[in-house]
Amino acid sequence: MKRKNLFVLTMLFAALTVVLPVQAQKTKARQQKQLVTVVYQTDIHCDGCARKIMNNVPALGRGVEDVRVDVPTKQVTVTYDAQKTGDDKIIAGLKSIAVNAVRADK
């Protein structure tokens, strides 16, 4: 009986390993998004600030697709799904990790 349980657990473990990434790829393909790319001018000054942003992308809210940080120009480029989020939420999200930001084109 114990051996049977172990076998089932091992199979479950292996199945999850394969299914999870495949399912995630399929889900991604199904989604239709309205992507917008916005550049923000920030007060970051070092690599630590860049790491802080990259470690906390979920703090910017849902719908964020891509984040790029350029320390010399202090610019953060965010690509997001306009159906799920907007400028205000991104700026508020950056504020929550102590990064002050404004749109670079304003």
Binding site: D47, A50, M54, D70
Partner: peptide
């Protein structure tokens, strides 16, 4: 040396 820190999470 220039310090350029460019990270892409898109890929």
């Amino acid at each position: 040396k220039r310090y350029v820190f460019l990270i892409s999470l898109c890929v």
